[in-house]
Design a protein around this nucleic acid. Structure first.
Length: 889
RNA sequence: GCGGACGUGGCGGAACGGUAGACGCAACGGACUUAAAAUCCGUUGGGGGUUUCCCCGUGCGGGUUCGAGUCCCGCCGUCCGCACCA
């Protein structure tokens, strides 16, 4: 390891400005040469794995990245100082559509475009001074990564975790591609603008629903996850307990003599309030009935049309069509219920069929009110006389006692559910019980097929004779071909002249490759595991390394990934455990979701947006005015919004780093706003941060003068002034440590400001000329060292520069976190606020361990208290030890 | 519609049920300077007394408590997530 270079012995220059540009590049080089951020898998110290969500290589980093990676870096540097062997890696989520769009628009190959972007963004990230182990870097589009993903796919396939099935997709007929829901805007493709069709396509699925219950239950164990994210996942999984009931159909009324209809319900208690049955427009029974009924056929077609447009779904009226089919009530065969096709019943949930109880379900009530089917209340709210209880336009979905329900009358909702379930599950029709208890989930299997080029090829071969044949592992990876054209819509893999034609690995006859590639969410579902040993060539993971590093101790990223990415990664971890690649269930022990970076918007008179760099802001009194720099034309200051190209309110990290340095950008990203909330980027704020950088540099320079006179040995005693400096230093140390642990970076920033202010005041008090007493010099050295250590995780380059100025020959990046001396935080006397009737009126200074009686006596002796009492004894005196005294007059 | 979070000075925000407004930004006054920038020292929730004093104040209305920004109930507003889930 090369020695730490000294900066030409110029450590004590206080008059010079800190040159961030020059110093940052210099220290980055030192860190890199000494390789101090490389995590060693065989390091015996306790481990800490901190990970920020890896970026998509879109071209350039943005302020959101700066915020995200700064937070992770603070944690990484702090944990390193605390003696942990820290893993802090970086990689690239490199497959995906934008690369293909670029190929279409700019005739550049997706691979070229992607790796060029990675090169740019890597150098941008490096200019931030992040303490990343770059030796572990990889991109998900590297064959050396996706090879293992294909292996995982094959192992999942063998383990029964992969399935091929038909499902409805959004199909763009112009681009000839499948669209995700969010790519369908107002029923049209986001790129082509063509009306999107619903198509049935055979696709590959990961069977995430196999783990529905487990993924839900384990949320309770994720104590270091935000409650909000756990709740979102809980709702997404959407578990509901209910009853599957087989309703008998009157065969005389069914199109092909069908005899039963299966429905799922969670309100079987309300069975005696049933007024109708409803099935989804794409239910098989609906299709059968429509075959003989043109009007019904037209109605179903209409339902499917309104299917995609978001606006219409939201406002859609409940509509139905009577099929003429009649179902028999399970408790009374003489009671016939009409079967409707209804637009609000979803084929994807439950069985695609329901029974309608209008009195206790709002949708059902809207429906019967439209078709005049009436309602019968069967649950009576507490405290209401059943005789008086009627339902008109508002369904009652609360608790109560059963009424109008024959043998259920008088039971509670819960008891009635139990009774209905008990009776129907013991009653046999044909060879099966009439009903069975069932748990249903909203969660659906994860469709991973994408008809695109720039993704991980799905390693299977379709053979006429053998069917689906996995690609033999010795043939992995299935590489993407390089010679592809993007001049036409559709999947380039599918129309490639040779790529898909292969011999069947089983029978040797001509067969064809699967041309679908995997959803890019697959790529990001296991990258954190690969980072633990990215060099292992023979398997996706090295179990020893993965077991040692995982779970990730602290994962940091945007809230936008609260559901899909995190749920998929949780599923993947379980699937990898089931196939022997990992040994745990939950990949992320701690999760933190940071807020966005937002900025004011500026609108020109012509309605267009102006960029912050083009705008000059002036403040006159309390009003701010904005004008265009170029023309002086006034611009309107608009709302503060997420930085986006369309609003032109972005600030380029490169510009900021060039003008102020990475430390200033990092510091500002952490100041002011709590990390989970949005942070407003302002020019004034950045300048404030920059001024503080300069102030710290001057302050440390001043301290360095005194440090030279400090004795090596710790003095036996400290005078009052020196002790005050020590107390301030250790007070700041305690607070900053605690706040970094809890990721409250904005408070760390405030504590560091406060401590710097105190130290600055103390140094000013020394006058600068004469001799500084040894005890003070020693205290100043200790305080300056602590100060530099405290801001090091946030402003690492400045910290190295200051560390050297203070005479150290080591790197602060390798220095241990300062040792806290608790006894300095304990005062001999404390100042207690004194309240009279709950209002603060005075202070009283007492010994730290004064008895409550002594404190009470001291308080009652105070003039203000005497005056307030007016000679009467106090009603009560409350003494809260160490906190406050309240006198009730 | 359902679920959740939030609401504190001119602004971003601090505040285990215990001194509301830490810290920063902006603004204002002063020092230094030929001048400006930078820096340094003050002031800065509102109102009144005008020194060491009082009143009001955390979206609104109630409540619990010796004491509420914090806990409870009801409104109002903002933001986010899900969306006909049977």
């Amino acid at each position: 390891m090369p020695p730490v270079p000294s900066h030409g012995g110029q450590g004590f220059m206080t008059s010079e400005r800190y040159n961030a540009r020059e110093a940052e590049a210099r220290w980055q080089k030192v860190w890199e040469e000494r390789g101090i951020f490389a995590a060693k898998n065989d390091d015996p110290r306790p481990r800490y794995y901190v990970l920020e969500m890896f970026p998509y290589p879109s071209g350039r980093i943005h302020m959101g990245h700066v915020r995200n990676y700064t937070m992770g870096d603070v944690v990484a540097r702090y944990k390193r100082a605390m003696g942990f062997n820290v893993l802090h890696p970086m990689g690239w989520d490199a497959f995906g559509m934008p690369a293909e769009n670029a190929a279409m628009e700019r005739k550049v190959h997706p691979r070229q475009w992607t790796y060029d972007n990675i090169a740019t963004m890597r150098s941008q990230l490096k200019s931030m001074g992040l303490s990343i182990d770059w030796a572990r870097e990889f991109a998900t589009c590297d064959p050396s990564y996706y090879k293992h993903q294909q292996k995982l796919f094959l192992d999942f396939l063998r383990a029964g975790l992969v399935e091929r099935k038909s499902s409805k997709v959004n199909w763009d007929p112009v681009d000839q591609t499948v669209l995700a829901n969010e790519q369908v805007i107002d029923g049209r493709g986001w790129r082509s603008g063509a009306l999107v069709e619903q198509r049935e396509l055979t696709q590959w699925f990961f069977k995430i629903t196999k783990y529905s219950d487990e993924l839900l239950a384990a949320l309770d164990t994720l104590e270091r996850w935000p409650e909000k994210v756990r709740l979102m996942q809980r709702n997404w999984i959407g578990r509901s307990e209910g009853l599957l009931i087989r309703f008998a159909l009157d065969p005389a009324t069914t199109p092909n003599g069908e005899t039963e209809l299966k429905i799922f319900t969670t309100r079987h208690d309300t069975l005696f309030g049933a007024k109708f049955m409803a099935i989804a427009p794409d239910h098989p029974l609906a299709a059968a009935a429509a075959a003989k009924n043109p009007a019904l056929k037209a109605f179903i077609a209409e339902c499917k049309r309104t299917g995609t447009a978001q606006e219409l779904i939201e406002t859609a009226e409940k509509k139905g069509f009577d099929t003429g089919i009649r179902a028999l009530h399970p408790f009374d065969p003489a009671w016939k219920l009409p079967v409707y096709v209804a637009n609000f019943v979803l084929m994807e949930y439950g069985t695609g069929a329901i029974f309608g109880c209008p009195a206790h379900d709002q949708r059902d009530l809207d429906f019967v009110n439209k078709y005049g089917l009436g309602n019968t209340p069967v649950v009576c709210p507490p405290g209401v006389d059943p005789k008086d209880f009627v339902v008109t336009d508002t369904a009652y979905d609360g608790d109560g006692r059963m009424i109008n329900s024959r043998f259920l009358d008088g039971l509670t909702v819960e008891e009635a559910k139990e009774e209905v379930a008990r009776r129907l599950e013991s009653e046999m029709r044909g060879n099966a019980p009439v009903a069975e208890r069932q748990v249903n989930f909203r969660l659906r299997d994860w469709g991973i097929s994408r008809q695109r080029y720039w993704g991980c090829p799905i390693p299977v071969i379709h053979c006429e004779a053998c069917g689906i044949v996995p690609v033999p592992e010795s043939d992995l990876p299935v590489l993407l071909p390089d010679d592809v054209e993007f001049d036409r819509p559709g999947n380039p893999l599918d129309r490639h002249p040779t790529w898909k034609h292969v011999a069947c690995p089983q029978c040797g006859r001509p067969a064809r490759r699967e041309t679908d590639t995997m959803d890019t969410f697959v790529d990001s579902s296991w990258y954190f595991a690969r980072f633990t040993d990215p060099w292992t060539a023979e398997a996706p993971t090295n179990r020893a390394a993965a077991d040692a590093w995982l779970p990730v101790d602290q994962y940091i990223g945007g809230i936008e990934h609260a559901i899909l990415h995190l749920l998929y990664a949780r599923f993947f971890t379980r699937a990898m455990k089931a196939t022997g690649h990992l040994g745990l269930d939950e990949p992320f022990a701690g999760l933190f979701t940071q807020g966005m970076v937002v900025h004011e918007t500026y609108r020109r008179a012509d309605g267009g947006y102006a960029a912050p760099a083009e705008v000059k802001i002036e403040t006159v009194g309390d009003t701010r005015r904005a004008t265009l720099r170029a023309t002086g034309e006034p611009v309107e200051i608009g709302p503060i919004e997420k930085m986006s190209k369309s609003k032109r309110n972005t600030v380029d990290p490169d510009d900021i780093i060039a003008a102020y340095g990475a430390d200033t950008a990092r510091w500002f990203m952490l100041s002011d706003s709590p990390p989970e909330r949005d942070v407003i980027w302002t020019e004034e704020g950045v300048q404030g941060a920059w001024r503080f950088v300069q102030r710290l540099w001057r302050l440390v320079g001043e301290a360095a003068q005194i440090v030279r006179a400090a004795p090596a040995e710790r003095p036996a005693a400290f005078g009052e002034a020196a002790l005050a400096v020590r107390k301030a230093a250790h007070g700041a140390l305690a607070k900053v440590s605690e706040d970094i642990e809890r990721l409250r970076f904005n408070r760390c920033v405030a504590h560091i400001y406060e401590f710097a202010n105190t130290l600055q005041g103390a140094l000013a008090g020394l006058g600068g000329n004469g001799e500084v007493a040894p005890d003070m010099a020693w205290a100043v050295r200790e305080a300056a060292d602590i100060l530099v250590c405290l801001f090091h995780p946030m402003m690492p380059h400045l910290a190295e520069e200051c560390w050297q100025a203070l005479g150290h020959t080591t790197l602060v990046a390798e220095a241990p976190w300062p040792q806290l001396e608790h006894e300095l935080l304990v005062e001999d006397t404390i100042v207690l606020p004194v309240q009279i009737n709950g209002r603060k009126r005075a202070d009283v200074t007492v010994a730290r361990n004064a008895a409550n009686m002594e404190i009470e006596a001291a308080v009652l002796a105070l003039d203000v208290v005497q005056r307030a009492l007016g000679g009467r004894p106090p009603k009560k005196v409350i003494v809260v030890p160490q906190r406050i005294v309240n006198v009730v007059a």
